[in-house]
């Protein structure tokens, strides 16, 4: 049967066209699995950072995930210096997600905030997605390293971040906590997304 070239050609063409049709049909089904238009549109959250008292942290929701807003005191901002040797990526250069357009100076790459006193970072551990626990007080012990400048500790797999959300060396998490896209729409109001 297949020694007839015309028949072989027709079978091949029909097979190729059928496969192409099946692939084209798969496109809308795969697209339907992607986030829907309303899910994408719901990705904007506004927040008044003046709600957060100095030294306190508040967790807000953005796209169904936690965002840490930390009001850093002078003392906390000072604690960001002096432990670069313990950090994996002290100047936040590893991947785009840990940086932002407004990070222009070395200072901003350390404080990782538009206004240094208000840190806004994703509250999702860059290892496997747990929410790290806020451990603001310096001095280690327990699960924390001995030289602890204050920061976040992820109980799931033991990753540590400082008060700028910068990841420590020797822990499973690969990156600093991500910076969500945000800007100030007034003196104290931020708009995330």
């Amino acid at each position: 049967m297949s020694d007839n070239p015309r028949r072989t050609f027709l079978y091949t063409m029909a097979g190729v066209m059928g496969t192409a049709g099946a692939c084209a049909t798969a496109v809308p089904f795969i697209r339907a699995l992607e986030p829907a238009a309303d899910t994408v549109a719901a990705g904007v959250t506004e927040f008044d950072v003046s709600e957060v008292e100095p030294g306190m942290m508040k967790t807000i929701m953005w796209r169904g995930q936690p965002i840490f807003v930390l009001h850093r005191t002078e003392e906390m901002l000072k604690s960001l210096y002096g432990h670069d040797d313990m950090l994996r990526d002290p100047l936040s250069r590893a991947i785009p997600e840990v940086q932002a357009d407004w990070m222009k100076t070395r200072e901003q790459r350390i404080t990782r905030a538009i206004k240094p006193e208000y840190l806004v970072v994703s509250g999702v551990c860059t290892h496997l997605g747990c929410i790290p626990v806020f451990e603001p007080h310096a001095g280690g012990g327990g699960d924390l390293p001995k030289r602890w400048p204050g920061g976040w500790h992820c109980a799931c797999h033991g990753s540590n971040y400082d008060l700028s959300g910068r990841v420590f060396k020797g822990v499973p998490a690969p990156y600093n906590l991500f910076i969500p896209p945000y800007r100030y729409t007034s003196d104290t109001t931020i708009r995330i997304g």
């Binding site: 496109v27 809308p28 089904f29 697209r31 339907a32 829907a36 238009a37 309303d38």
Partner: peptide, 13 residues
């Protein structure tokens, strides 16, 4: 209505 308007190609399915 969400399937019809928001889900990608939901109207088609």
């Amino acid at each position: 209505e969400r399937i019809m308007r928001e889900v990608n190609d939901g109207w088609l399915i």
